[in-house]
Structure formats: C-alpha cells, structure tokens
C-alpha cells in the first residue's frame, strides 16, 4: 500500500490500510454518515399500503361471492372495499409535498415508475369500487356490473404494486426483497379483506371470508419468514427498532386473531368481530414493519456499503471505480 514515486527519491507517503481506519464492522464510511436518504413518506403511506390491499382483495372477494350466490357476504365485502377505496387516494394526496398538484400524477404513464402505473391502477380501481359497492347495495348504477368486474380485476394489481414501488428503489432491505415482497403484500391484502369482511358479516354467511383471512394470515407468516431468510444480514432492520416492534405486534395480533377465528369465529358474532379487528391490526402492523425497515436500512451505511463492497471483493461486480488508466 506504500505509494513511492519511482522516478525520484521522494518520501514514501503511505496510504492507511483499510483495516487501520475501519469503523463499523469493517465497513469504511464517511464519518458514519448515511449514503442514502431516508424516504420522506409519512404515516399515510403504510396506511395506504393497508387500505390499497384491503380495497383490492375485498373487491375480488365481493365479486366472487356474488358469482357463488352469497349476496349477503358480497355486499359486506363491497362495503369494506369502498371504505379502503375512498381512503386510499385521500391518504396519498395528503402525503404529497404539494397536494394541490396531485393531478400531475396523471401527466404521463411510465412503466419505469411503479408509482405512475399505480396511480393509474388506483384511478381505475378507486373509481370503479364505490360505483360497484353502491350498485351492489342499491342497484342504481347504470352498467354497474361492469364497475364490479373492473373493480375486481384492477383490485389484484392494486394489492401488490405497492411492493413493486418500494422494491424499485436503492434501499437494500426493500430492493433485495423484490421477489418476495409482493407476495407478502398480497398475503396481507387477503388477510385484510378476509378480516374486514369477517367483522362485518354474520358468521353464518362468512365462511369464504374466514377461509380468506386464515389463508392470508398463514401465507403472510410464511412469505415474511422466507423474505427475511433470503435477505440474510440485509434483513437485520426487521429485528431492530420500530420495524421489530411492528413485526412483533403483527405476529402476536395475527396469531391471536387466527386462533380466535378458528375457535369461536363460526359461532359467536362478537368473537368474529374481535378476530377481524385483530387480523386487521396485524395486517396494518406488518405494512408498518416493512415501511420502517426501509428507513432503518437507508440510514445505516453498513447495509448500503457492506454488500456492495463484498460483491466487488468476490469478483461478482466490478464496482464503479477503476485504478488502471485506459490510455
């Protein structure tokens, strides 16, 4: 590492070896400063992850329950879908730095921006869901069946595109989980829709919603576990700080809600309502956990620099620096 001028007898000026000034776990950084910026998104965004999933999966549940001839369940599911569908755009607009410019979201359609694609999905799903719900309850909407089909179809991407949105960033804990995160969100959406509908529907008509809520809870636990396992050291933020707290709340509420639903959900309306609320809290809390983990991953330079430096050391990546002159 000693740099000596070969042409003269100039004093050798040694460059300190990396290990000599290594700080946090062998990672070199600039005074421990973060490399990435944390997002500026506030509480509205994780809540929207929940309401978007709720709307999307509830529309599908309602549409399919109609097909099966369970109109009582279908109407309650449409009501759940409508609640989420009305809340979602309000949450998103409220989070903008310039809310009065929310229509600029529709200036273009860009596949490279999941937020752009998602805005259009939300326009279609958020526009058709209230129409579908009102039609299901009153039959007043002309062409209501088209609104129902549209809401059900666009509800599916509405429930998972938000995972693509956060994955399509430089934040390691989100980006490196891009294959699993949509399944975590999709499972959460199923649990949210099932839970809300279980809470709103008399137990006798709610069997499909119970199955959906339980399947979503199980799938959510499995996919979250798989995601964290695949992240390895990069998944550490899920075990620290606010992300860990929300993760724990999500698991405890999810397990309690699922147990209550299985044991008493068929016989007791009160138990059904309680389990629906517990599972809803679990779904919301899980989204918060993912949200907070991203902030923690961005703010610690070791999660950003460490894996990049390791990939260069292993020869998998060339990195962005080069010492050999090309001249």
């Amino acid at each position: 590492m000693t740099a000596t001028d070969p042409t003269t007898s100039t004093t050798p000026v040694a460059t300190p070896a990396p290990e000599a000034i290594a700080g946090d776990g062998g990672i070199r950084s600039y005074h421990g400063q973060p490399v990435l910026k944390e997002p500026v998104w506030s509480w509205e965004i994780p809540c929207y992850f929940y309401t978007g999933g709720l709307t999307g999966a509830s529309s599908g549940l309602a549409f399919l329950a109609e097909l099966r001839g369970n109109d009582l369940l279908a109407r309650r599911a449409w009501a759940a879908a409508m609640m989420g569908g009305v809340a979602s755009p309000l949450l998103l607009i409220s989070d903008l730095g310039k809310p009065e410019r929310f229509l600029n979201m529709l200036r273009m359609f860009k596949v490279t921006s999941p937020m752009s694609v998602g805005s259009w999905i939300l326009v279609v799903a958020g526009g058709s869901t209230p129409l579908a719900a009102i039609d299901a309850w009153t039959g007043w909407i002309p062409g209501g069946k088209y609104a129902r089909r549209t809401a059900a179809m666009f509800g599916l991407p509405l429930a998972t595109y938000t995972a693509a949105l956060v994955s399509n960033t430089a934040i390691p804990v989100w980006h490196k989980a891009h294959r699993m995160l949509p399944f975590v969100f999709g499972s959460g959406a199923a649990m949210s829709a099932g839970a809300a509908t279980v809470a709103l529907t008399p137990p006798g008509a709610a069997a499909p919603a119970r199955r959906l809520a339980l399947a979503g809870a199980v799938a959510g636990a499995v996919t979250s576990e798989l995601m964290e396992h695949r992240l390895g050291e990069q998944g550490e933020p899920y075990k620290q700080g606010a992300a860990a707290t929300f993760r724990r709340v999500g698991r405890v509420a999810g397990a309690a809600g699922a147990l209550l639903l299985v044991s008493r959900g068929r016989s007791s309306r009160a138990a059904a309502v309680a389990s629906g609320m517990l599972l809803s809290a679990a779904a919301l809390s899980t989204r918060w956990s993912v949200f907070k983990a991203g902030f923690q991953s961005a703010s610690d330079p070791k999660y950003v620099i460490g894996p990049q430096r390791e990939a260069i050391s292993r020869g998998e990546r060339r990195g962005a620096a080069r010492r050999e002159p090309r001249i």
Partner: peptide, 25 residues
C-alpha cells in the same frame, strides 16, 4: 420487480377463488 408483482397479483386471484369456491358457501 414487475414479474414478481404480477405473479403475486395472480396468486392473490387464485387465493380468492380458492377461498370462495373451496368450501361451503
């Protein structure tokens, strides 16, 4: 990223169908 989100949306659709039609009404 888009493939995974699309696959998850389809999986959600399949899950919904299974939940509604995979048992008693």
């Amino acid at each position: 990223i888009w493939s995974a989100a699309g696959a998850a949306a389809l999986a959600l659709g399949a899950g919904l169908i299974a939940a509604v039609f995979g048992g008693r009404r």
